[in-house]
Design a protein around this nucleic acid. Structure first.
Lengths: 153, 153
DNA sequence: TGCATTCAGTTGACTAGGAAATTATATCCG
DNA sequence: CGGATATAATTTCCTAGTCAACTGAATGCA
């Protein structure tokens, strides 16, 4: 039975700290959205639809970084809450379109305000310069690795 | 039917960029671990046990930020892979302890090397100064909001 | 002592996502 | 034209969490 060899500490990784902070910010946001009975994924889909033409599920899947199967079910939930509508495409018998209902559209600004508030809550006591630096570094990392897609999970 | 009022852009939020980058880093790590047939949660549990005394599931739950139910199931999977052992506590008839098997213990350094490599892959083309800044900002955010617990999700 | 309460862990019901199979429609081309 | 192939969405099955109910053991106090 050999003694364990030393391995790098978890906290040595930037990825570790990134995940801690990101998870906390997201969970705090989820808690705020819960007051409106909306999940982060639901908010995200609604935000993509907001102010745009009715959109194919496949396009939403692409923009949100989810599978089409996930979009089908997410849409089902939002339809059940009367926040979006699904309609068959006139042009293509296979295609569907998703669009916000009036109720859904009216809700988005309120949810956006929660997003603003959540961001402020975590980042407002960084200095302006620090916030700018953080944003610059994150965007540069995102660009380098060709990260796209609205992140959900 | 009213026109949608302008709402803040998604990409205006630091939380958005944080989540994008964090998700990508985590997914890349998950892909590396998959080669060893281990998930991020499994790695995380093994890393907590590594080099320590057998530990109660409830303690792991606390350190990892998961429920006890989640630990029960996560432990079941690791036991099925012969990476950890579950034993009844001698002192307390309700209690169990979890510990790495020799096989599990031997695997940890290899997984830690994957973690090192993953972190390097994403962050090594930031300058040293930039990495230090990012680490400082993330740690300061974590501290301010009393974030603890190994993040999994 | 003995019964209520607390505590550790597990389990069942549920949520939410992915991968792959499935269904229905559209397109391409011989 | 009509069959092969491609495409859009959905569905099925699987994984992995949560919450809350449950089981059995320990504790506490009348």
């Amino acid at each position: 039975m050999s003694l364990p060899q030393p391995v790098s500490d978890l906290t040595a990784h930037l990825g570790f700290w990134l995940r801690i902070v990101s998870n906390h910010v997201s969970q705090a946001f989820a808690a705020k959205l819960a007051a409106r009975e909306v999940t982060v994924a639901e908010w995200s889909l609604m935000r993509v639809l907001y102010g745009r033409e009715p959109m194919a599920p496949s396009r939403l899947a692409e923009e949100m970084g989810l599978t089409r199967g996930a979009i089908t079910r997410l849409a089902d939930r939002l339809i059940a809450k009367s926040l979006i509508l699904r309609e068959a495409s006139a042009a293509d018998g296979r295609a569907q379109t998703l669009a916000l209902t009036d109720r859904g559209s009216a809700l988005v600004p309120h949810l956006a305000a929660l997003a603003d508030r959540n961001d402020a809550e975590f980042f407002d006591d960084l200095s302006l310069a620090e916030r700018e630096t953080l944003e610059r570094l994150l965007k540069s990392l995102a660009q380098r690795s060709h990260m796209s897609a609205t992140p959900i999970a």
